[in-house]
Simulated assay, not measured.
Amino acid sequence: MSAKNVSSSSKKGDAGKTSSSSAKTSSSSLSSSQKIASSSSVKTVSSSSVALSSSSKQSSSSKKVKSSSSSLRLSSANLSSSSKKVESSSSEYVPFDHSRTLAGDYEVGEDAYHQFTDPRNGRSYYYIKITSSKTGKSVTVMAENLNIGEMILGADNQNDDTKIERYCYNNDTTKCDEFGGLYQWAEVMQLPSRCNTESCSDLIQPNHQGVCPDGWRLFTWNDYLVVRGYKDDFNDGVKGLRSTYGFLGTNQSGFSLTGAGRRTAAGKFLDLEGGFFWFFPEEFENNEDAKAYIGLVGSYSDSGPGRNNRDKKTLGLSVRCTKLE
């Protein structure tokens, strides 16, 4: 299903064989303290477009970009980075333990989580089976964000079709291991990079694998409906999809969303801990503006993504995968 031919040995930015708390990488850790706005972090907008904006303070290399009139406002607070083992001048960096983001056994049941290893880079991921109490349908989904590829700077587009490229929040690889990589739509889909600026609807396949490992496919709108239909004994709604780890959730579903933030089309990084954003493997039908459908969950919002939410394919968003069954 992938239009890109990528071998695991060609990804210079991957850590080689690593676990979820893996390889030694040289990187400077960035952290900052920002205020999360107390107002609702997600506003549902008309079906014409979805733009994302934030008041987050970013690195001096990022340009300031005015938000569009149809914006979803999410403010963020940077979390101290932790992830791949990194040597600093003062201490050895401790790998991030992804079990910290998961739900407890008392919420989802004993042994609800399992792990698999992506053979492309040796990284392991937690996953969970979620059943909708409304429809009885089940999906097996990753409980972590995908993290694979060579890191490139946020100022650049992911244009090298010979390998998988990723953004790491604030250009910091430790953020990638903690929150996963951020990917433009064509990279998510593993289609030619030209698909970020033109229609490639004829290349989208059923059960589109994209950047997911073999045996897995990209998370769809129908998958979201199943996950959102989890047994909700406490009326937590979307809050039950969010992890208790820095994302103001209860994680009753076990889905364990974390506030990974996003890379804007202008190359800025925003909304760490303020929002979780992902592309669906679908183009917006009226695609003269090169947009794709997106999902988003905000840290303070009780609302989930709207079916018609869409934005530019050149954003950098997170990836979740669904197991083929």
Score class of each variant (00 low, 15 high):
Val297Ile: 15
Lys239Gln: 15
Ser75Lys: 02
Lys4Met: 10
Gly13Ala: 06
Lys63Arg: 09
Cys212Ser: 13
Ser39Trp: 06
Lys239Tyr: 10
Cys176Glu: 02
Thr244Pro: 06
Ser89Asn: 12
Thr314Met: 11
Asp233Glu: 14
Asp236Pro: 02
Gly259Asp: 03
Lys12Cys: 10
Arg194Tyr: 01
Thr174Arg: 05
Asn251Lys: 08
Lys63His: 07
Ser59Trp: 00
Arg307Trp: 12
Thr117Val: 15
Phe179Gly: 05
Ser28Met: 11
Lys63Tyr: 03
Ser28Ala: 11
Ser55Lys: 01
Tyr167His: 03
Ser193Gln: 01
Cys212Trp: 01
Glu165Tyr: 10
Gly104Ile: 03
Thr18Pro: 01
Lys43Thr: 13
Glu288Ser: 13
Glu285Ser: 11
Pro192Ser: 11
Glu273Trp: 00
Ala260Met: 13
Asn121Thr: 02
Asp233Met: 13
Glu178Gln: 13
Phe280Val: 10
Ser9Arg: 08
Leu317Gln: 07
Ser301Cys: 09
Tyr169Ala: 00
Cys168Glu: 00
Ser56Trp: 02
Val65Gln: 04
Thr162Trp: 08
Asn159Leu: 04
Ala51His: 06
Lys24Gly: 03
Leu270Phe: 01
Ser61Tyr: 04
Ser47Phe: 15
Asn286Met: 08
Lys313Ala: 12
Tyr245Cys: 04
Ser318Lys: 00
Asp311Tyr: 09
Gly210Phe: 00
Ala266Tyr: 01
Glu110Thr: 14
Gly275His: 03
Arg166Pro: 07
Glu273His: 03
Gln209Ile: 06
Asp271Lys: 00
Trp216Tyr: 15
Lys134His: 14
Gly259Ile: 06
Gly109Asp: 15
Tyr230Gln: 11
Arg263His: 11
Leu182Val: 07
Val42Asp: 00
Ser76Cys: 04
Leu225Arg: 15
Ser67Thr: 04
Gly261Leu: 05
Ser60Gly: 04
Thr173Trp: 00
Lys85Pro: 02
Val211Ala: 12
Ala51Tyr: 12
Ser54Ile: 01
Ser8Ala: 15
Val226Lys: 00
Ile148Lys: 14
Pro281Tyr: 05
Glu110Arg: 14
Val297Leu: 11
Tyr106Met: 08
Ser27Thr: 10
Arg263Met: 06
Gln209Gly: 03
Val238Lys: 07
Tyr93Met: 05
Gly109Arg: 14
